[in-house]
Design a binder for these strands. Structure first.
Lengths: 339, 339
DNA sequence: CTGAAAGCGCTAACAA
DNA sequence: TTGTTAGCGCTTTCAG
């Protein structure tokens, strides 16, 4: 920076002021400084700046994986917003429990970021409490943390709408297929199961544990087995609600291989409105990760710039049912309700 | 840090030494310092440290998107390696040309990272040259930059193997389906087309432009149209080589909707060995992004730690053909070769 | 509107 | 093995 100052014939302070876009600089001087900076290919060192300002200019993101449509889409939309605000995005990937434990033990973001976005979906209370020590705004994405800022879709309501759609079509035996993540069920899965149960209860349908199956998303055999399990029940379902589109598509394949026609013999409902849902012509409940990304970006701005802002606010985004061709009324010969 | 020093009854230098794991510290003192640091919930400020060491402790990553199986998997494997080396991962997402241009104009990583990993797949020469100014190791992932460190699979060879597989099955009219990214064809696409042409030439088959079609990966109608285009040729193909599994699966759907049986009436070959390929029982050419991630991590270490290391080395990873059930010999009534 | 000077929190000589 | 001292490159008072 001194080099730039020298070349422009001003003091370092002036260079600093100019480069940060402060107003009190003569246009003439500003031009000279900018010219000099360009000539010298100069960029301000964030490190040195943060040492004095106390801000790091970075926002940390905690994710279990980066190989995820949801997380990827959120970040694709969030990234440019943060960038526009002059912030870097530093990512902590914790693909296994060891990495995750190490993150919570060392809390590496501690003095090295101005805010933390948590995508881990299934934090324990203990972990969340640990993050409270961080002395920076923490935003929870896709899970509601009590008393902490969060952005998510209303999974309970969404799932209830989906189940109602099946009930309205005439289904009485509706299975629920849960996805297991690398570290167990994630937050949304619980919520979606709750919505399913609510809808059943509202329609006076009994909840049947046999109709709830689970498998890991990337475990092909597990999915096939879970589907097989449903098909061999004494009273098999006429519809399956799968809590993720990508798994739902696998379920479709399994069913078709078992010779089951969709939607005539079995309805399948997904969740997400992932691209493959369009391909598979899958009825699904749409959530918009792009919107979530933008909402997170805005909430971040609010929390950082407005000290008056509610630091525990929850932003809930809408979902909607997208009817396509994998759901239909149940087959005529299905057991009539109550028989 | 002075607080910790005080509490432990030592000098700041000793705290610094202890916390960085330097050897010349008495076990007794080390214990006291560590205890004090824990009590005070203290973490070293990277910013302050880097100011004096000249290293930032961060590696920058340039990606066009984070919603990508390939990039996501590479980073899931690379992340923990960098973390183990004490490095942060700062991500620059450039989902559109404006973001990308701004990255290359401002080069925000300039003084704020110790190395740069480029995932942009289709950099222009001008852009690559710009990165040479960066004064830090730059590693190109999945594209070979002349005279610059790169990690990739041999797409030409892989694609040739795939095409040969189809030729060996007896196919003579083999279509090639190219995927268009948000900013045009990516590097690998060119390479894969080259491999395809090589295999044709080696088998004395003429290259027919009509057999090469293209579509954007997320453009459902475009894919359907491209498939339609192939099917309505005077002499339609008996096999389609699609340069990405996810698109190949869409092609499968399109073909099946058009009433075409696979593999009896048409063979389809993919590329990647993405999860959906297993589901779709798709014959494909496997590449292992997890291995690429690890290779990048190792190359990074080498480049940073060993000044003798070849700074232009190319690491080429293997691919292999995975025969499944979407490829078979062409139907009998297909036009005989040369007729 | 611009310059001079102090100091952010740390590490790296150098001394002890 | 430990402590002392001098900056790293910037921003921020405070003068002018």
């Amino acid at each position: 920076m001194v080099d730039v100052a020298q070349l422009a014939g001003v003091s370092p302070s002036t260079v600093s002021r100019t480069l940060r876009g402060l107003t009190n600089v003569t246009p003439d001087v500003r031009a000279r400084v900018e010219q000099a900076a360009r000539e010298l290919n100069f960029a301000v060192s964030r490190q040195a700046a943060s040492l004095v300002t106390g801000k790091t200019g970075a926002v940390a993101v905690l994710v279990p994986t980066l190989n995820s449509w949801f997380i990827g889409t959120v970040l694709d939309n969030l990234g440019p917003m943060l960038r526009a605000a002059g912030m870097e995005l530093v990512v902590y990937v914790t693909p296994n429990m060891a990495e995750r434990a190490s993150f919570f033990e060392r809390l590496p973001a501690r003095r090295n970021a101005d805010a933390l976005l948590v995508f881990s979906f299934d934090l324990t209370d203990e972990e969340a409490t640990r993050l409270d020590d961080l002395e920076m705004p923490v935003i929870y994405v896709s899970q509601h943390a009590k008393g902490r800022a969060s952005v998510y879709v209303d999974d309970v309501d969404a799932s209830r709408k989906g189940t109602q759609h099946l009930i309205n079509l005439g289904h009485r035996r509706i299975a629920f297929f849960q996805t297991i993540g690398p570290s167990g069920f994630v937050f949304s899965t619980h919520e979606r199961l709750t919505g399913y149960r609510q809808a059943l209860a509202e329609a006076d349908l009994a909840f049947d544990e046999e109709l709830v199956v689970a498998s890991s998303a990337d475990d092909e055999r597990g999915i096939v087995e879970a589907v097989g399990q449903l098909l061999t029940l004494r009273e098999p379902p006429t519809a399956i609600f799968v809590d993720q589109d990508q798994v739902a598509v696998s379920v479709l394949w399994s069913l078709r291989r078992a010779g089951i026609e969709i939607p005539n013999h079995m309805s399948v409902l997904g969740f997400d409105d992932h691209e493959t849902a369009r391909w598979a012509d899958l009825t699904t409940i749409a959530q918009q990760p792009a919107d979530i990304g933008r909402a997170v970006g805005e909430l971040y701005q609010t929390l950082v710039n407005d000290p008056e802002a509610d630091r525990e606010q929850h932003i809930v985004l809408p979902t909607r049912l997208i009817p396509r061709n994998t759901t239909a009324p149940p087959p005529r010969d299905a057991p009539a309700p109550g028989v």
